[in-house]
Design a protein around this nucleic acid. Structure first.
Length: 179
DNA sequence: ACTCCGATTGGCT
DNA sequence: GCCAATCGGAGTA
């Protein structure tokens, strides 16, 4: 579960789907593959911090840094259900079904109200709250969505989701590398 | 300086 | 199913 206490109120979500990205030279699908830049610097920093990036000119996507500082990594939060502050989440996403409030990476950041500028924040400190499930979850894994080129195929089956969970994002075929 | 394009979404056919 | 929206980063010159 991840909560964010924004100036206008608190929303918390329960994650249903994530994608893992490794780092320099290891993972062609990773923003860190070609080395450290100003944009991806957070991926090289402390685990538990927030790597936020801006995509398609309109969306903010949120990642949790997972590996020790000096390496590089990110876990993209792709799908979730709202478990607290649902009225506020509805305000932030007018006209959207409750199920769809956080079901997708761009939707998720909007429902939580996390701005791009929050990138680099420690998710273990206020105004964030990150909690891990008490018992292990049964998850499925498969190819990552939307990743083009070599990083998208079955060589990197690092999309993880909870089968049947309503917070899993709608399936989209990833772009396959040439065969 | 200039071009290409994306870890997407929502609206329209 | 198809496609426009929208803009910063990264690669090239």
């Amino acid at each position: 579960m991840l909560g964010y206490d924004a100036p206008d109120g608190l929303v918390a979500i329960r994650l249903s789907e994530v994608e893992a990205y490794r780092g320099v030279g290891e993972d062609p699908g990773s923003h860190a593959f070609r080395g450290r830049t100003a944009r991806n610097a957070v991926m090289f920093g402390e685990p538990g911090h927030l790597y936020a990036y801006f995509s398609y000119g309109m969306h903010v996507c949120l990642n949790i840094v997972a590996r020790p500082a000096g390496l590089s990594s990110g876990v993209l939060m792709r799908g979730a259900t709202v478990v607290a502050g649902i009225d506020l989440a509805r305000q932030r996403r007018p006209g959207v079904n409750d199920r769809d409030l956080a079901r997708g990476p761009g939707r998720l950041s909007r429902a939580l109200g996390v701005p791009l500028g929050a990138g680099g924040s420690d998710l273990l400190e206020s105004p964030f709250e990150l909690r891990v499930p008490e018992a292990p979850l049964h998850s499925a894994c498969g190819p990552r969505t939307g990743v083009s080129g070599d990083g998208g195929g079955t060589a990197y089956p690092w999309r993880f989701w909870l089968p049947g969970d309503e917070g899993v994002s709608p399936y989209r075929r990833h772009k396959l590398a040439a065969e």
